[in-house]
Amino acid sequence: MPVKTQSILSVKSPLGPPIEILKHVFPAQSNKPRVSFITGLHGDELEGLYICHRLTQYLKELETTNPNAIQGEINIYPAVNSQALESSTRLWPFFSLDINRTFGPGQSPSLAVETSQTLFDDLQSSSDIVIDFHSSNLHLMELPQIRIIKDFEKKLLPMAKKSNVDLIWVHPNADIFESTLGFNLNRAKIPALVIETGICHRIHQNTGDQIFNGMLNLLHYTGTLNIAPPPEKIKEPKQVQPDQVAMVQASHSGLFIKQVEVGQVLKKGDNLGKLIDPITGNVLEEIVTHCSGLLFTLREHPLAQKGSPLVRIAKSLSEQ
């Protein structure tokens, strides 16, 4: 059976075309784990759209070349927050609302909450595993990574290791996560990996391709796809706990002029960049690293307020 595209939610809009959430369903040949890929919860995060595009293209081709390969149902939700995507904003513009803070119980009634509930119910009923793709915000560039809340580590870590990311960061829960899709799926015992890569408003084809390969590897590992593992070597991600992550923050407000790139391995004392005063021309701060390790987060948007994160470093073993 070929791929089917369904609308899991259709809401009439005042100007004509409805708001829809579409899902591509690749039917299974047997009952191996059902995997769902979702992207576009934040309308300015486009890296996941590219990864889902590659997955859709690949699976459509596979249906004709190797129809028995799909052993578990695969669902792709390629653009869940269509209004935000159309206006390229993080928030659902009509409501000024972050839809990834509307999951979980007790939310006040609104169309956004109705939408997130419909999406959640659909994912819950059609998935054994969910992958939620995100980019970073307007300011920070992230190396491909998976962040795992400690409580869910046991289930998620083996899958995360198969995903071809550079880093896995296991951290304790924080209250702010409790209204996110990923947290609520995991709490409902649907393992959900949140993959974060790149920066918003951009597509980085190389890291997108890296994660695409990781997803094929993961689908092979779960038995969902009966294919040979991808020929490219899958990365062994660096795994860190909170005390193995060093964050450098701006101690002045100014413009951050970076002198490093994300993915670089740094030595203690390396120059990270400088903070300059755009009005007076003064250099406010020369920023150096106080530890060695992998630079996995980097401020790309130069405007920095006091306290803004500039870089995050996964410390080398010798630093721990």
Partner: peptide, 10 residues
């Protein structure tokens, strides 16, 4: 009387 919600702790 408000229901307890997933965002209330913050």
């Amino acid at each position: 009387r408000q229901k307890e919600s997933s965002t209330q702790k913050v």
